[in-house]
Design a protein around this nucleic acid. Sequence first.
DNA 1: CAGTGGTCTAGACCACATG
DNA 2: ATGTGGTCTAGACCACTGT
Lengths: 234, 234
Amino acid sequence: MASPQGISGFRDIKKVVLDRIRSGIWPPDSLLPGEAELAEEFSTTRTTVNRALRELAEEGYLERRRRAGTRVLRSPVRQARFKIPLARDEVEAQGSTYRYSRISLQQTEAPEWLAAKLGFGAGQPVIHVRSMHYAGSRPFQFEDRWIIAGNVPGAAEQEFLDISPGEWLVETMPFTTAELSFMAAKADRELSGFLDVPPGDPVFLAERLTRLQGKPVTFARLFHSEGYRMTTIY
Amino acid sequence: MASPQGISGFRDIKKVVLDRIRSGIWPPDSLLPGEAELAEEFSTTRTTVNRALRELAEEGYLERRRRAGTRVLRSPVRQARFKIPLARDEVEAQGSTYRYSRISLQQTEAPEWLAAKLGFGAGQPVIHVRSMHYAGSRPFQFEDRWIIAGNVPGAAEQEFLDISPGEWLVETMPFTTAELSFMAAKADRELSGFLDVPPGDPVFLAERLTRLQGKPVTFARLFHSEGYRMTTIY
DNA sequence: CAGTGGTCTAGACCACATG
DNA sequence: ATGTGGTCTAGACCACTGT
């Protein structure tokens, strides 16, 4: 197993390197040969080796530092990627019919807690929208959303009767960044009515704070009844 | 703004492209100029443009297809990355003192539900470990774990008194893959005792199924009391 | 079958961290 | 000071896919 023959392309090199890591040839904390040396072994160029190693580093297996070389991480950085779907997409992906219904809309001023969370003074004009998303006839998600009117042109004119604020915002303001939190919460009386669960029952809550170039755009609380799962593979 | 001057390097090109997308110069669904054309505009090579566009595609902004060209995605694929930390790291990161305590260990056979979940016949030898993780004097996480003895050499000899199964497994079997689910659950009587919450209260539950080259290694249920948040930025 | 992105080569210079 | 990875150039061939 000196110089494997059919090796070519950065994908093959990635596989070989991963195999050597997994099989213990290059144990955790050990230093890999330099790019130049590997390029020679695989009869390729440093560019190709570089891409293979760079991607393995990005995937959390290796640590690379100039001058210090490429090292196998002691415990690979485990990271999961979630896709954050719109309620509509999630419902339709599970084969159900999606339905949206606005509950209330109010143009008001940002309450203290919201202003604090978003990092600006209270009293800013905001739009408070509450709505339901259904999968077939069953409640799927209750959405409690605040939109920072001053940072979202056109929001004040929207009624959100036929389109959910989530979908409207994705179309109107793509390319935002966001913070996302998941947690468990207890259904209060109102929520238990919306989601059709007994009061006090656990609900799954996703909070999402969206910004565009640093300026807050919207803060949403998305409630799912017990039984909902957010799943990923990594 | 024909050909910006200070532009060089794939990072600069990424910025310019993103700006043009955000500012609507290249609206959603529109086709970007070809790599060759962009290379000329930025006075660089196709290789460099390629890397910039490839990374933007990976980040979910663009869709690239041979012959069809590079297109701006209508709604960028929103994806979050979570780091999956060990309880110890999570506790220490929040500045508390970590403590681990094994509750029980039992060598037994896989129950039906577990065998079904893992995709093999019931009755396989498994190790069932239950343990607690504390942040200071407060309960942080209750862990209910099953280890597939036949697929984890050395597991049967471990007592898990001083090291948690999670940590031991990371050291013993790195480079696994996993499925991860988050959900809300209700504390039963036993769990309420461990986590020090009233029975029936919501708890945050992370389930994790780990495999090595397709073969199941371990299945764990990690329970956190209400108030726990799993957070990310994307 | 033509045009786009995907990848590789061969070489060069540079940035940076370590000894 | 020096060796490592980081990046860029210039060019080539290839794979895929839409027409």
